[in-house]
Design a protein around this nucleic acid. Sequence first.
DNA 1: TTGCATCTCGTACCTAGGTACAGGCTTACC
DNA 2: GGTAAGCCTGTACCTAGGTACGAGATGCAA
Lengths: 148, 148
Amino acid sequence: MSEKWLRTGQVAEAAGVNAQTLRYYHRRGLLQEPQRSNGGHRLYPPETVIALRVIKVAQRLGFTLDEVADLIETIGHRHGRPNSGLQARATAKLAEVEQKIADLQLIRQTLVQAVDAGCDDLVACAASPCCPLPFSDLAGGGHRVDVG
Amino acid sequence: MSEKWLRTGQVAEAAGVNAQTLRYYHRRGLLQEPQRSNGGHRLYPPETVIALRVIKVAQRLGFTLDEVADLIETIGHRHGRPNSGLQARATAKLAEVEQKIADLQLIRQTLVQAVDAGCDDLVACAASPCCPLPFSDLAGGGHRVDVG
DNA sequence: TTGCATCTCGTACCTAGGTACAGGCTTACC
DNA sequence: GGTAAGCCTGTACCTAGGTACGAGATGCAA
């Protein structure tokens, strides 16, 4: 590997992240602290850009930063050897994603029904037995789903 | 309406929310401040329980508290008259939910591919041209989806 | 050597939707 | 009237993933 060191801003730009985010990732244990110049400025090896891409891809797949940190640590420990645990974790994440999709599809259904039924006054709907909105199954601890 | 006043704890329990949440909703403009006893304790009309159910249903449908507050204000202004805007907002929310489902389905696809391809080392994958993980389309501002 | 861009650190702030705590007052019941 | 439960306020804290700011040091080119 050619030792062409990069400064914080260069790494950030190359990876498409904010420079502050790099420090944040160091704090979170997602990136190792790199070498420093004599004056204390960080000097990154070019591989750091790859590391950031890996993090971003994992996030896109629905992993939290804690999960990504954990994954990276495991990879660090067994680099080059099989079974980093990625398979198992991806499978578990897949189940989570599928659950989330199912939740959203239920919400979608309900919205469609509300639109089809012409619901226009939530207070009246809450009192009406024929409104499709799920006012009645609230008491029994409905779980929330974030939609964005 | 029969004036059987309820105290904070009674409303909270009847609606299945934390008592602190009531205060929070007051602050957020989701609930009007009710009457007070001489000693300063809040005295709610029974309708407040319905109002809370309405809020919770709207949340379940994917509306943020800001959106719910807005919806409630509109309803307050045009109560009993048609066109509260709920139809339009539900339709817009439906589009959001559908977008979210589509995003998650893409993520699901990618996870399935990663599992099928036996991906086990993210760093190696990032360097490989045949890995299904989307390392290459990162530069162009990928949007994040929360999976939870 | 000057001057400006970049970087350092610590700390605070942001969204969203709440929850918790402390110290003191009120209400309800016996 | 005593006592315990409930409620009041203000303020701080929580998760998750960052972003912003200020003061001061460094790096680099002319």
